[in-house]
Design a protein around this nucleic acid. Structure first.
Lengths: 167, 167
DNA sequence: GACATTTAGTTAGGAGGCTAACTATAATTT
DNA sequence: AAATTATAGTTAGCCTCCTAACTAAATGTC
């Protein structure tokens, strides 16, 4: 996501408002701020994960696998749950496989398929990351009062159901 | 940014909470939801811009140029304001240049530099996009009451100043 | 004035996204 | 049973982002 470092100042907004009469300054500022905070948090998370040699995509695959009783799932299902294409998932699995964090297990019934399994080394990696991850999420979100937390949740829910306003 | 499609259900959270005692479910849900809404909005914006043949990076450069009285700026300054590296800015400018939306103007005083200038065709492109962009931002953000809007702004501000909790 | 340092921008190579086209296998139709 | 269609995963090629190394030009230092 683009990092919008330089939000518009009032003088600039005036120039734009003159040319584009429909612009509602408040709305634009809130919208851009939301994009920017999301982007900042996302890169901060990436930076944190990078110190363990991971990135969001690969990390998320490990978590999805750990959620399973069997510690296994298929590439298609993982792709669907992670919200990426199957092609992208191939690349993520390739990387995790190379580092020994998951293995490909062939499916004897249907030879098109296989299962991706979290290795013990993958589980170790998660055990290393997750406590610190939770600690940091707590540190960040704990800055909000419980009322602010629930306000945020309900506002985001409202926006999310209207994301298609942009499509 | 990764799209976190599959937020954890209570059963999964229990499993994780047992293994990682420090996890605060509320915090995690709010954090992930914020990342996800940011990501959804960002891809929706990309989809909108794509229908005009642009993406966020290139669009943002055009806007930064339009903000300038002279409609010009240098690659380094643009990179800094857009929050990307100079190398990335080179690529963005290459693309915009190829489509005739900006031109490179050589600087006679310092032959290392040049200025990037918004062409009239670039201005036309913005004039085509921006009114519709503002309309859609209005449509989306107008779903929030003015109180919700200001709540959102203050909550985001709080989070933003604590983004380094993750670094 | 020659040498070293800084600055502006580009290039090269890597990562993770995407779409579209492909291979192999399984399931369905006829 | 043969031909078609659907499904699982990969490959190829493109985009945007990154870092690191490079070129060229300007500036500082001795």
């Amino acid at each position: 996501m683009l990092i919008l470092k330089d939000l518009p100042d009032p003088k600039i907004l005036t120039k734009f408002a003159e040319r584009y009469a429909d612009a509602n300054i408040e709305h634009v500022i809130h919208f851009l701020t939301l994009l920017r905070v999301g982007s900042d948090l996302s890169s901060a998370l990436d930076g944190f994960l990078a110190s363990y040699g991971l990135l969001q995509g690969r990390w998320w695959v490990l978590i999805l696998l750990m959620r399973e009783e069997s510690l296994m799932s298929s590439p298609s299902i993982l792709a669907e749950k992670a919200g990426v294409t199957r092609a992208t998932m191939t690349g993520l699995i390739d990387g995790l496989d190379k580092e020994g964090l998951v293995i490909r297990v062939t499916d004897l019934d249907d030879r098109r398929k296989f299962q991706i399994k979290l290795t013990s080394s993958g589980q170790d990696k998660l055990d290393e990351i997750m406590p610190e991850y939770y600690r940091r999420v707590g540190e960040l979100m704990g800055k909000l009062s419980s009322e602010e937390g629930s306000d945020l949740a309900s506002i985001l829910a409202k926006l999310q159901t209207n994301t298609d306003a942009f499509k």
